[in-house]
Simulated assay, not measured.
Amino acid sequence: MDTAGFTNLLTRPGPYATVLADVSQDSDNAAHAKELRVRAACEELSAQGAPPDVVAEVSDRLAANVRLPAPAARVVVATPEGVAYDQVAVAEVPNQVATWDPLPDLGSWIAARDSSVSFVLVLVDHAGGEISLWDSGLPRPTSTTTVEGDELEHVQKVQDDVGWAAYRMQQTTDNVWRHNADKVAEEVTRLVRDHGHDLVLVGGDPHSVSRLRDVLADQPVEVVELESGQRAADGGEEALHDAIRSALMDRVVRQRTALVRRLEEAWGRGDRAATGVRDVADAFVTGRVETLLIDPDALAGRTLDPADHPGLTFGEAPVSGPVEAGEALVAAAVLTDAQVCVLPASVLGDAPVAALLRWA
């Protein structure tokens, strides 16, 4: 997971109230259950010493309705200066989080969001295409663009030269279709450049899809052709959604498999990997961590004392004495632009945390 979105969090001095809660509200009973969960989270914050005004701000954010299908997760992080982070997503919340700590408690939120994928969905046909930007943790696209292609020019057929007229018609048709696919590819290229997406899912007319893939071949993106997907209103929406889910699941599995393989190779060479809380913390001191690999459940209850790692800092947060190891390592990742990914301890050498390093 890219940690850039958390950067502003650590410009505040803290302490931090962090709540991750299920805010699903898809029925009357669910609304009451949500109210009880919010109340329990706020009571927990108060019991840990969070000031009443901080608790009130968190409560107000959590109580607000969200337009998401169940399961809906919301994370709110607040300090005495106000709410510093507030995000929602379609995700399960296995265990509610409510902490008042020197650092934000983001491990469970990262676990909920780590399998989400940002992607571009392109449905293309001879007439143009529809391009939408998606986050798989949200039920609707963040933006949609329609590219209207050129219309096919009418070619008058001549009665005494039907063969030549048909040839001219086919040539004109092919040129227009290629041009329309190129217009769609041009818009996809612009969106990828502006938004940084590296996965493009393409569905629609096979000839237009093939042309689009050829044009995008030189772009720094992975292009995946969907098994189903049409731009027309009756193009099989359920089949399209199934094809998208399958492509995204394949992407997540391949990414995690690649991380495990890289970690195993680094262990085999004896370099570019750190394992365990102490070694990973030392690697953060020298700015060597490229990707932090955590098992939030295995990290729970483990502590880290910054005094044991001279040079390990947490932005504006005045940390003294032992803190939760998971909170400290995620904060260090945020401040050093490291990625954070969630993997089970069983593939991390039975350690709760490991790291892939930028250099040995």
Rank of each mutant, 00 (worst) to 15 (best):
V200S: 11
L201T: 10
V202P: 10
G203I: 07
G204H: 07
D205P: 09
S208I: 08
S208M: 07
V209M: 11
V209F: 03
V209H: 05
V209T: 15
S210I: 00
R213I: 10
R213E: 15
D214R: 14
D214V: 13
V215F: 02
L216A: 10
A217Y: 06
Q219N: 05
P220A: 09
P220F: 04
E222N: 13
V223C: 09
L226P: 03
S228H: 15
G229T: 09
G229D: 12
G229V: 14
R231C: 06
R231T: 13
A232K: 14
A232E: 15
A232W: 08
D234L: 11
G235H: 10
G236K: 06
G236E: 07
E237S: 13
L240A: 06
H241S: 12
D242H: 14
D242R: 15
I244F: 09
S246D: 15
A247D: 10
L248E: 11
L248G: 14
L248P: 12
L248F: 12
D250M: 12
R251F: 10
R254H: 14
Q255P: 00
Q255D: 13
R256T: 03
A258C: 06
A258D: 14
L259G: 06
W267H: 13
G268W: 01
G270F: 06
G270R: 04
D271G: 03
D271T: 14
D271M: 05
R272E: 12
A274E: 02
A274T: 06
T275Q: 13
T275F: 04
T275S: 15
G276K: 03
V280C: 06
V280D: 01
A281D: 02
D282G: 10
F284K: 00
G287S: 11
V289M: 02
V289L: 04
E290C: 06
E290G: 11
E290T: 07
T291A: 06
T291D: 10
L292R: 04
I294D: 00
I294Q: 02
I294T: 06
I294E: 01
D295L: 04
D295M: 05
D295E: 12
P296E: 07
P296T: 10
D297C: 01
L299F: 06
G301Q: 09
R302I: 01
R302Q: 12
L304K: 00
L304N: 01
L304W: 00
L304T: 01
D305H: 09
D305E: 10
P306Y: 10
A307S: 15
P310Y: 09
P310L: 11
G311A: 13
G311W: 04
E316A: 15
G321P: 11
G321H: 08
P322N: 05
P322Q: 05
V323I: 04
V323P: 01
V323A: 03
E324I: 04
A325T: 07
G326T: 04
V330Y: 01
A331I: 01
A332Q: 05
A332L: 02
A333K: 03
T336V: 02
T336E: 11
D337I: 05
D337A: 15
A338C: 09
